[in-house]
Write a protein that binds this DNA or RNA. Sequence first.
DNA 1: GTTTGTGAACAGATTCACAGCT
DNA 2: AGCTGTGAATCTGTTCACAAAC
Lengths: 231, 231
Amino acid sequence: MEQTLKVAKPPMPNMPPATGHMLKVPKIPKMTVRRLSDYYRILRTLESQGDTEPLSSEKMSRLTGFTAAQVRRDLAYFGSFGKRGVGYDIGDLQQSLRSILGIDHPWSLALVGVGNLGTALLSYPGYRAQGFHIVAAFDSDATKHGRRFGNLVVRPLEDLAETAREHNISMAIVAVPASEAQAVIDTIVAAGIKGILNFAPVKLQVPPGVFLEKVDLSIEIEYLSYLLTNS
Amino acid sequence: MEQTLKVAKPPMPNMPPATGHMLKVPKIPKMTVRRLSDYYRILRTLESQGDTEPLSSEKMSRLTGFTAAQVRRDLAYFGSFGKRGVGYDIGDLQQSLRSILGIDHPWSLALVGVGNLGTALLSYPGYRAQGFHIVAAFDSDATKHGRRFGNLVVRPLEDLAETAREHNISMAIVAVPASEAQAVIDTIVAAGIKGILNFAPVKLQVPPGVFLEKVDLSIEIEYLSYLLTNS
DNA sequence: GTTTGTGAACAGATTCACAGCT
DNA sequence: AGCTGTGAATCTGTTCACAAAC
């Protein structure tokens, strides 16, 4: 009844022609994984409100705005977490999602770029559940070296590899100008960091095995502009 | 040969059964529009580098990482901007995209929530091409009222409707805690603002005709966590 | 009776491949 | 000859609808 720690039952319908080494769960849509974060947030909220009733996909649908079928399908990619006729146990499902998302343990992050955005990200409380810790900050601007933010000291970018090793850093947040971004990314990759969240509005190259996600304010605002213009 | 100012030729293949009033371009995938911002950025970069050669979809493909077919299809949703055998004119296409995206004129924005993230967004230079101007800042915390950021003064949230009217504000950026977000959104909607970019990690309701986009740091980081965990 | 998990149907987006224009 | 614009084919993701489980 407990679904902990392992991503259960990767269903393997129509596998592609067997791609060499395949340590990966077959093929989960990116949007499914992102919705998992939403489900997880809802579960935390419900639990914090003392709600202990099993949760149906129908109720989750109302809380998230996704369809109930979508909720069930999303979860079913990873296993059978519910009880038919009953629903999903709030605590159990939460734990399962933590395990799937890899947030059942803390992560150490590096921040590169201590400008306006970077400093805001340092103090942003949005690293939910305290699982994500920025343990080092870097900047290529020497005038910023040694500056303190809380208990962090800004270091030269050249120290990244060493610090990453020392603190077991596995993700980096990049908040530098577009013109510097590729060089920074190269340094991060060279330091062995495999997950990067980039805020610079530019297309960047990473080698296979390194995951690069981007947040692009320009795209968001321009999309709103489009919607307001063409409606 | 010039493609200016109007979103040309909305191709209307299989229209749905004629939905009452339809001032809208038929049905453009959201991701298509977002890629338009990427294309636009590339064009600006090329132009700033003095590149004046016509641009093929193949070259755009190399610059953006999308396929050439995708580039052509995306653009073709909005009209015929290229010349067969030649490619797309950098200046003309730029102007067409500006027009489609609605960024051929400036936009006035309000910022609500002058915490860490909010203040960073105030000074963030990422509102590309200076088309997007934050002309007013609001906070519900009275201790922040009157505080200055550059030439902006933080005002009480109650002033939003009046200020929005005065300055013709049509978009708002929301950077408040999740617990306050829905109330803030309601105020923004009541002020007649129809485009909202939300940074609060919570599901929010807006009436039809109001566009709400979200940027959720937790989801981005948790998705990286997922990728690093399940690979 | 209720709600999950899932094949099958459907809808939507991407890619193919080529006719048509320059 | 070269490159766009676009039907047709393919691929991917979502929704339907119901048998299985409780």
